[in-house]
Simulated assay, not measured.
Amino acid sequence: MKFNRRFFLIAVSAFSASVIFSSCAPSPQNAAPTSSVEASEFSEPLKLSVTPVPAGEILAFVRDNIAPEAGLTIEILEFNDFNQPNLALKEGAVDANYYQHIPFMQDFSKQHDMDLIALNPVHFNPLGAFSNRISSLSELQDGATISIPNDVTNGSRALRLLEDEGLITLREGTDELATSADIAENPKNLRLLEIEAPSLLRSLDDVDVAIITGNFLVQAGLNTKEDAIALEEAGDEARFAVRLATLRGNEDDPRIQKLNELLHDPRVREFINEKYQGAVVPVF
C-alpha cells in the first residue's frame, strides 16, 4: 500500500503539471478545425505515460499538430525511468504508453504479472558504444571497464554489440536474451558493470566505455550516429522499435486505434528525421 500511495502522489503531481502545460500550450496554427462528429467520437482524453526523449517529444508533436484534426485529446505523463510508464498503466493512471520495444515489454510483463500488447512500430533508438577515453574499441586495454544497461533486453543488445566487435564470445546456443552469464570467452578480461539505463551517460567519466540506447543520448544533446565509437548492426529495427502499448483487452479502444494510426502520419516521419538527424529512426 505504501507503493500505491506514493505512486499516486507522484503520478497526480506529474500528471497535473502535464495537463496544465497542455492547456497553456498555443493552438497549432495549421490545425484543421475539429468537427462535432469527431469530437463526440472521442469524448474522453487519451492518457499516456512516456519517457521524455524522444518518445515524449514525438507524442507531444502528435498531440499539438495532428490529434486535434482527428478530434482526439491527448494527455501526457512523463517518467525518467523504464519501469514507471508500465506501472502507471498497471495502476490505471493512464490508458496506454509509448516508450518500449517488444522484448522489453515481454520481459516486463513476465516480471510484473502484466498482460501487455504492442501495436505498430514507430521509431527505433539505435544502441551504441561511447567513451570519453578512447576513440575506438580496439584501444581497450586488458581489464577495461564497460557499463551496460541492467535491463535484460537492452543488456542483451549490449552484449551482442561487444560480440560483433570481437571483444567477447557468447556460448553456443545462447537464448535470444543473453546475459553476462552467457559469456564464454572474454580475452581482454573486460569488467562489465550493469547499471540502470538513465545512469549510463553519467557513468562515462568513470568507465572506459558505456553502451547506451539512443534515447538517452538525444536527451543529452548528443547524436548516436555521429558520437558513437561503435553501433549495433542493422537488422533488428522492427523488433526493437518503440511502439504504442496497452493492457490486453484495451487495444480496440477507438482512441488507442486512432493514435496508433496518427503515429504513422507522414508528418511524424518528417518530424523525426528533421529533429533527430539519424539519431532516432522512423520505421514506417
Score class of each variant (00 low, 15 high):
Asn189Pro: 00
Tyr276Gly: 08
Ala60Gly: 12
Leu192Gly: 04
Gln277Glu: 11
Gln219Phe: 08
Gly56Pro: 04
Val50His: 01
Ser203Lys: 12
Asn120Pro: 12
Glu270Ala: 15
Val62Tyr: 03
Ala210Thr: 04
Glu274Gly: 05
Ala118Thr: 03
Glu270Met: 15
Asp227Leu: 01
Ile211Glu: 10
Thr153Phe: 07
Leu87Glu: 11
Asn80Leu: 10
Glu91Gly: 14
Pro103Asn: 04
Arg133Ala: 13
Pro54Tyr: 07
Val218Met: 12
Ala197His: 13
Arg160Ile: 15
Leu59Glu: 00
Ser18Asp: 02
Val50Tyr: 04
Pro187Thr: 05
Arg243His: 12
Glu172Thr: 12
Arg202Phe: 14
Ile58Cys: 05
Arg160Pro: 12
Leu119Ala: 08
Thr179Ile: 00
Leu89Tyr: 08
Asn154Trp: 09
Ser27Arg: 05
Val218Asn: 08
Leu9Asn: 02
Asn150Met: 05
Arg63Leu: 07
His101Pro: 08
Pro68Leu: 03
Asn250Leu: 07
His101Tyr: 13
Leu244Asp: 01
Pro52Ser: 05
Ile146Ala: 03
Leu161Asn: 06
Arg267Trp: 10
Ala181His: 09
Gly173Glu: 07
Glu163Tyr: 03
Phe240Val: 07
Gly221His: 03
Ser199Cys: 12
Asn125Lys: 06
Leu190Cys: 06
Val218Gly: 09
Ile102Ala: 15
Phe124Ser: 08
Gln277Gly: 01
Arg191His: 14
Asp175Met: 08
Phe124Thr: 06
Leu200Ile: 01
Lys225Met: 13
Gln257Lys: 15
Ala197Phe: 09
Lys2Ala: 12
Leu193Gln: 15
Ala279Lys: 04
Leu170Cys: 10
Pro52Ile: 04
Val209His: 00
Ile229Val: 13
Val94Met: 09
Leu262Pro: 02
Phe124Pro: 05
Leu217Glu: 14
Glu139Tyr: 11
Leu177Ser: 11
Ser156Gly: 14
Lys275Pro: 10
Thr179Cys: 04
Ser23Ile: 03
Ser131Phe: 06
Ala32His: 06
Pro254Ser: 10
Ile117Pro: 07
Ala181Cys: 09
Asn250Pro: 06
Thr174His: 00
Arg269Asn: 12
Tyr98Gly: 01
Phe7Asp: 15
Glu233Asp: 15
Leu140Phe: 01
Val94Leu: 09
Ala129His: 10
Asp64Pro: 00
Asp164Pro: 05
Asp252Arg: 01
Ile117Phe: 06
Arg133Asn: 13
Pro26Val: 07
Val209Ala: 04
Val152Tyr: 08
Gly249Met: 09
Ala158Tyr: 01
Ser138Ile: 09
Asp227Ile: 02
Ala197Tyr: 08
Thr73Phe: 02
Glu163Ala: 06
His101Phe: 12
Gln219His: 10
Leu46Tyr: 03
Pro68His: 03
Ala96Gly: 05
Ile168Glu: 01
Ile229Met: 06
Val268Glu: 03
Leu161Ser: 06
Met105Asp: 14
Glu251Phe: 00
Val12Trp: 02
